[in-house]
């Protein structure tokens, strides 16, 4: 049997019911939110995976370092190397007189050559030849 108008609500009236239902705001209880977030934290693969890889990363970096260090001979060896490096730098800058003397002015020249003496060839030659023949031009 077909329904008459009086037996049914029209669309407009029915929509008023739907509007009423839509206007009801579903408030979340704190308990539900925390339970859902606890589940989320427990099953978060990225967080768990990242936690593991983080640990691995932080362990890996010192490992690379410590491997290099131990190959050289540990921290004392590194300290020795550092001292030697600094000594090299100091020699480069300070140009000690002894160095200039030994090299006969070949290493450093100009104003760096603090010593007036410049070695001549005979200074280098073995003494048993004498120096006369080397300087015979001078008479």
């Amino acid at each position: 049997m077909a329904k008459t108008d009086k037996d049914m609500l029209d669309d407009q009236m029915l929509d008023a019911f739907f509007d009423a239902a839509r206007s009801e705001v579903t408030e979340l209880s704190a308990g539900l939110v925390s339970a859902i977030l606890a589940d989320a934290a427990a099953h978060q693969p990225g967080a768990a995976g990242r936690g593991v890889s983080d640990g691995r990363d932080t362990r890996q970096q010192p490992n690379v370092w410590s491997r290099i260090t131990s190959a050289i001979g540990g921290w004392p060896a590194l300290a020795g190397m550092a001292t030697a490096t600094l000594a090299g730098v100091w020699i480069g800058f300070a140009a000690p007189t002894q160095l200039e003397t030994l090299s006969g002015g070949l290493v450093l020249s100009g104003e760096y050559a603090a010593n007036e003496e410049v070695y001549a060839l005979e200074d280098m030659a073995p003494s048993y030849f004498g120096t006369a023949f080397l300087m015979e031009d001078d008479g």
Binding site: T26, V33, A40
Partner: peptide
């Protein structure tokens, strides 16, 4: 983002989606 381990994403998804599905489930 959640799958990549972002801690904020879960909360935002919860607050965005749960009220809707909760209302639906209640009905």
């Amino acid at each position: 983002l959640y799958g990549n381990g972002d801690p904020m994403a879960a909360e935002l998804l919860t607050r965005r989606l749960v009220p809707r599905v909760l209302g639906y489930a209640t009905r």
